[in-house]
């Protein structure tokens, strides 16, 4: 059987890749993907923990995270589209109406 800590390492690796992507990339769609990666890193850890501890809470939380992530995707993309209608760009450095 695969030991638990392998899953936890995988989860934290996916989380860190997502975090790194979010902090370094400036394309809004890529940043959005990075957030999804972070959430899925959390999901891997939660499901693995839940399985090894024989406790359902982790899997329940995972289901909620997936549902919330779907809602978040809908809202996030809607915001990007609303912005795109006024200014056709997806690059964050070009979105700078406010400064100071």
């Amino acid at each position: 059987m695969v030991p638990l800590h392998w899953y936890l390492w995988l989860g934290s690796l996916v989380f860190c890749i997502g975090m790194f992507g979010f902090l370094t990339r400036r394309n809004v769609i890529i940043m959005f993907l990075s957030i999804e990666l972070m959430l899925n890193g959390v999901n891997i850890s939660l499901v693995a923990l839940s399985h090894y501890m024989q406790d359902l809470r982790g899997q329940v939380l995972t289901l909620f995270v997936i549902a919330v992530a779907a809602a978040e995707a809908a809202i996030g993309l809607a915001i990007v589209i609303a912005l795109f209608r006024n200014k056709p760009t997806t690059h964050l450095d070009e979105i700078k109406e406010m400064k100071g």
């Binding site: 989380f15 997502g18 975090m19 979010f22 809004v28 940043m31 959005f32 957030i35 972070m38 959430l39 890193g41 959390v42 850890s45 995270v65 978040e72 809202i75 996030g76 915001i79 990007v80 609303a82 912005l83 006024n86 200014k87 979105i95 700078k96 109406e97 406010m98």
Partner: peptide, 21 residues
């Protein structure tokens, strides 16, 4: 207003991923 929503959304979603971890 679009820009405000976008910035709020990204940093908010980022912080909730951190909360989850």
């Amino acid at each position: 207003s679009n820009e405000a929503a976008l910035k709020y959304f990204f940093l908010g979603a980022f912080s909730s991923a951190i909360l989850l971890y």
